[in-house]
Design a protein around this nucleic acid. Sequence first.
RNA 1: GGCGCUAUCGUCUAGGGGCCCAGGACACAGCCCUCUCAAGGCUGGAACACGGGUUCGAAUCCCGUUAGCGCUACCA
Length: 474
Amino acid sequence: MPAPRVRFAPSPTGFLHVGGARTALFNWLYARQTGGVFVLRIEDTDKERSTEAHTQVILDGLTWLGVTWDEGPYFQGSYADRHRADAERLLASGHAYRDFLTADELDAARARAKASGVPFRYHRAELELPADEVERRATAGSPYTIRFAMPDDEIAWDDAVHGPISWQGRDLDDFIILRSDGSAIYNMAVVSDDIAMGITHVIRGDDHISNTPKQIALYRALGAPLPVFGHVPMILGTDGKKLSKRHGATAVGDYQDMGILPAAMRNFLALLGWSPGGNEEIVDQEAMISRFSLEHIQKKPAVFDTTKLEWMNGQYLSALAADDLIAPVERQLAILGVHTDRELHALIDAVKTRSRTVIHLAEQIAVRIDRSRVHRDDNAAKFVAKLGAATFTANLALAAAELNGVGEWNAAALEGQLKAQATAHNLKLGDLMQPIRIALTGGTVSEPVPLLLEVTGRDESLARIALAVQTISA
RNA sequence: GGCGCUAUCGUCUAGGGGCCCAGGACACAGCCCUCUCAAGGCUGGAACACGGGUUCGAAUCCCGUUAGCGCUACCA
């Protein structure tokens, strides 16, 4: 059996949505697993809405996700001649006919049907003019569309995710395949391209199920072998409606900006509608590829739950080595306006388990390297009030005195010193630690204080403590 | 309206006739750990849409109902 060829065929009329990204991912996973080829084709035939900028965003989004294509990007617009030739071939073979009705006449007929409450259907007998009349109008230069003559019989296929699906041809209209300006309509262009590109597996969104019988009829009329069709379910917003702008972030670029890691996004998207079958949640790329199967794709739509995405991102953040986090962290630091030549590894390791997004991670690092970002928050103020400003500063001063004399400035040594100090002065550990934390970060939450001191550095830590003593007693 | 698709905890899901008075994860609550917060560990509440069949036995198979979604363009 020859290697499968799959494709992802977005139209560049908007950003790369998570639904599209997941469809791309499923195609990619299938290609990687089977040793097949993943083709990227940009369907830019809607010239009104397609833009180069959108194309670039889609390419960037796929690249960021790690969904890399083996062929392409091909641009559907450049195959207009072939599309037209295929449509005309259908006309010549009697599988299609000329329709001289104008768009306006069609609209009027539809409006009439709607007004009288009957469903609008094309009547081929009326549309299909006598041969000599067709000839007369054509030579007279009347514009026409080419309409496919839909056979009446059953069209069924064994969908790779849904199983058997069946339609009756008679329920389908004779649809236009070539516009009066000579350009092909979607279904014609897709089939023409998929045949020409040797696509063996068409894996796409559920919203295309109703296009499939039309496309199958086209394959048959064109005498081409049928690919395998697999329709993956839609992705919904938390209100159960189709995911849209209203639901907030829906483009993969949005998630990059929110500080989501590509590996986490990939993992999350893969498990939205697909499951390896067991109980795992964190599935790395290799496992995804080896265990992927179209049969295990869910048939029903899934709600996109950002909370779980963030949890998963946190898992990746904790598990990934600082090395792998440097680039995204630097990107976010730049966005925050923080520029530093400090070595970031230790800082990242110190704070990463407490972060769910790279943004939060970067914010914490920013506070540790840039003193001007230390602002006491409400919880800190409450703590000061509860302990009493006098005790607070006294404890801080005590800590400062102790820390001044520390030889090795590392977490283990600092912890020993601080604990001894607390015991010696009969202080609760928290009453000594928390003031330091507040002095260093302005907040009540951080990594363990000894580690915080270590990554903040001796001079900077002492300076911040001195500053806090000053401002709080004042 | 017509045609099609779908239906397990709030959400993502496991489940392919007995292993299921339904398992895991997120979220939520409690406990443990602990200088704080995370992480981690433990515990808890929480679902087979409804009605008929088939079968010794159904979340699993069939039919119907209901609900949701999709398509019904000279858009893709």
